Amino acid sequence: MIFSLLYVPGNSPRFLAKAGERQADVIIIDLEDAVPEPAKSEARDGLREWVPKIRSAGSQVFVRINHTDRLLDDAEAASRAGADALYIPKVNSADLLTQLAAKMTALEANRPPISFVPLIEDMRGLFEVRAIAHAPRVIAVTAGGEDLATAMGAEPTPEVLRYPKLMIHYAAKEAGVLSFGMLRTTVDYADQEALRAAALEARRFGFDGASCIHPSAVPILNACFSPTAAELEWASKVVAANDENAAVGRGAFLLDGKFIDAPIVERARRLLKRGQKRTECHD
C-alpha cells in the first residue's frame, strides 16, 4: 500500500537531502523532465549517494528514468544504487518492459528484481494499457496527465483527463496491480482544497495513492488515501458482526438497518488493512 509519492529533481542536492523527512511513502528521484539535458549524467551518478540515504530514512525510492538512449544506463544505475522500482515514462507496449526485464535480470545477482511502474503518456499506450499492466515486474500503473493531454492536442483539464485516467485505472485493477493518480493533473498543488477534493474523489474510485511535486501535498495525500476513524469503526463492526453471523451459518445479515453480504465484508477488511498501514507508518 502506497498513498503518497513525491517527485524530487535528481539534480537538486538541496531537495534530495530533505526528501527522507517529507513523510512520503515513496520518493521518486526524477532523472527525466525535471533535469536539463546537461545535468542528466551527473544526476544519474548521484543515485549512488541519494538512494540509500533516502531509503534509510524510511521511504521507498523509485527512479523516473529517461525514455531515450539513456533508458538502460539510467535503469542500471538505479538498480545498482538499490532503488525499489523504476518509473518508466512513455510506455506504449508491453514489449518494452519484457525486454527491459530481461536485460535487468543479468545485472541483479546481488539484489531482488527491481520493480516497474509504467507511465501511460500517449494514445498508443492508452490502448495497450491492459497488456502493459500484465507485463513482467509491473507493480503499479499510472498516467502522465500533461503528456496525455498534449498527445491528444487537448488542455489538461479534469474533464479531458477523466476518461483516459479511468481507462488506465481499470486496467491496473484488472491486472491486480496498484493504481496511482487523481482524475486531474498533479501540477496544480497550490489550491489545497481542490487537491484534497481530488484525492478524496480518487480514493472513492479505488485509486491506491497519488504522486505530487511539492512536499506540502504529501500530508494531504496521506490523509485522504487513509481511512477515517468513522470508516474504521464501521469496518470493525462489519467484520465482527460477520464473524458472529458466520458462526451460526448466516452469510448475509442486517447491521444498523443495512444489508451486509460478502462484498461489503471484504470492503471492510480492506479498510482495516489500509488503516493498519497508516498507523504503522506513523508509529
Rank of each mutant, 00 (worst) to 15 (best):
K40N: 11
I213V: 15
Y170E: 11
I168C: 12
P13D: 05
A75N: 13
P38V: 00
F207G: 12
R274P: 00
S216W: 03
G206V: 08
A246N: 15
K53I: 14
P118H: 02
P36M: 02
F127I: 06
A94P: 00
A109Y: 11
A198D: 12
V177P: 00
R64Q: 13
L148W: 12
V61C: 10
V26P: 11
Q276F: 12
D95A: 02
E49K: 14
E159A: 15
Y163T: 10
L96M: 15
P89V: 03
E155A: 03
N92K: 01
P112I: 01
V63F: 06
S236Y: 09
A17F: 04
L16R: 06
V91I: 09
Q60E: 14
D25R: 10
Q23P: 04
I2T: 13
L100I: 00
L148H: 10
A198S: 11
T185N: 05
P156S: 01
E174G: 04
F205Y: 15
A151M: 09
P219H: 02
R162V: 06
K273R: 07
A197F: 03
S211N: 15
L6Q: 02
G82N: 08
G144E: 00
Y87V: 15
E32W: 11
A140C: 14
A202H: 07
L161H: 07
E128Q: 13
G10H: 04
P215I: 12
F180N: 00
E201Y: 06
V187G: 03
R80Q: 13
A171G: 05
E280L: 06
I88P: 05
L6I: 02
T142S: 10
L271Y: 01
R203N: 14
I27Y: 01
A75Y: 10
A175Q: 03
V26C: 14
V51G: 01
A262G: 15
V63G: 04
F205R: 07
A85V: 01
I213R: 08
E128W: 08
A217P: 04
E159H: 13
S179G: 03
D191N: 11
A199H: 01
E159L: 13
V265M: 03
D147H: 04
L271I: 10
E32D: 13
M182F: 08
D69H: 12
D188V: 05
Y189H: 15
V187H: 11
Q192A: 07
A230E: 09
L71V: 07
I54H: 07
A85W: 02
P36A: 09
V238K: 03
I139R: 12
V91R: 02
A94R: 05
G125V: 09
A240I: 00
E128F: 06
A197I: 06
A198F: 04
R111P: 04
A81Y: 03
K165L: 09
K273C: 10
R64W: 11
D147A: 06
G181E: 07
L254E: 14
N110M: 07
V177L: 02
V51W: 04
A149S: 08
F259H: 03
K53N: 12
D69V: 11
V238H: 02
R14W: 06
T105M: 13
A262F: 14
L72S: 03
P9F: 01
K173L: 08
Y189A: 10
F62M: 10
L195F: 12
A135N: 14
L254Q: 15
V187L: 14
S59V: 07
L5Q: 15
L86N: 09
S216T: 08
C281D: 13
E174P: 02
Y163A: 07
G209C: 00
A131G: 04
P52S: 09
